[in-house]
């Protein structure tokens, strides 16, 4: 695995943004910013693409969360497999980075399999895996930020976010609209994020951001050839516990002709989770 860039300071970490999957942060799958974070008063001018990006990054996504969901993976032949999982998260605090625990409940052959991520500000993230068949916790490494997240069409980067400063932003349409599944139109911005790193796998993303929620509701991801490779679409957006959460969304990959649909069946925020719930011991024992 190549070296992964990590923020060098807490303040820098605060301004991480997944231009695409801030959507995931936005839907509350992972905490990328502490709820108490406020937009910087010295930030970009209001209404600019940079300002929109910053607001997405810093909006309230809860101190901790517990999301039960179904992950539906559809392959290029149209065959679907479903996984039921629970993702619990704990926002970064102090020197400790974010914590993410993914626990698979179904199908039966992988029931109990757990995946734990410890993000670190100053060093490479740590990832642990628990396989019931082995009954032991194993560290795993080697996942690039843009690699698949647990075999889905989403990437780790989609889950964990990127550095705000790694991208430049451009406003494509300040008066766009997004129409939800019920047919209601909502004002939105359409912005484009361009990676400063010329070697980025996905150097360009066009996102539609709902103005009243600072949530990305559509996105198109372009590869290095300039072809659109992935498409993200939200079909249900709700606000449990006062936090905007994407309850139903699909990421489709045009290149592999696969897609992943996430349907959140239960979302709870600020439940009082502690660091103990994200230990290696909990990863192992929680499966039993």
């Amino acid at each position: 695995m190549g070296p992964r860039e990590v923020p060098t300071s807490r303040s820098r970490r605060m301004c991480r943004l997944a231009p695409l999957v801030t959507l995931i942060a936005a839907c509350g799958l992972v905490v990328t910013a502490a709820p108490w974070t406020q937009p910087s008063t010295a930030g970009p001018a209001e209404g600019t693409a940079d300002w929109v990006a910053a607001r997405i990054d810093t909006r309230d996504t809860g101190r901790d969360s517990r999301l039960a969901m179904t992950m539906r993976l559809v392959d290029r032949q149209g065959r679907a497999r479903e996984r039921t999982l629970v993702i619990t998260t704990l926002a970064a605090a102090g020197v400790r980075g974010d914590r993410v625990l993914v626990r698979f409940l179904a199908p039966a052959d992988i029931r109990g399999t757990g995946f734990l991520v410890w993000e670190h500000a100053q060093q490479e993230d740590e990832r642990f895996l628990y396989l019931p068949a082995l009954a032991r916790v194993r560290r795993i490494a080697g996942a690039e930020a843009q690699e698949s997240f647990v075999g889905s069409d989403l990437s780790y980067e989609d889950i964990g976010g990127r550095k705000l400063s790694d991208y430049t932003y451009r406003m494509l349409d300040a008066a766009a609209t997004w129409t939800d599944a019920q047919g209601a139109a909502h004002p939105a911005w359409r912005i484009e994020s361009a990676a400063k790193d010329g070697g980025a796998r996905y150097p360009r993303v066009q996102s539609l951001v709902r103005k009243d929620a600072f949530v990305i509701v559509e996105a198109q991801v372009f590869n290095r050839r300039g072809d659109r490779e992935k498409q993200y679409a939200v079909s249900r957006l709700e606000r449990p516990d006062g936090i905007w959460t994407v309850m139903d969304a699909t990421m489709a990959n045009d290149a592999t002709r696969t897609r992943t649909t996430l349907v959140v069946t239960e979302a709870r925020y600020n439940t009082g989770l502690t660091e103990a719930a994200f230990s290696r011991r909990e990863l192992e024992q929680g499966a039993r």
Binding site: P107, I110, F115, L129, L131, A133, E147, S148, V150
Partner: peptide
């Protein structure tokens, strides 16, 4: 199944 799951965790 679990080892296949592990192998499929990475993109490659």
């Amino acid at each position: 199944a679990q080892e296949l799951f592990v192998f499929g965790l990475s993109d490659e």
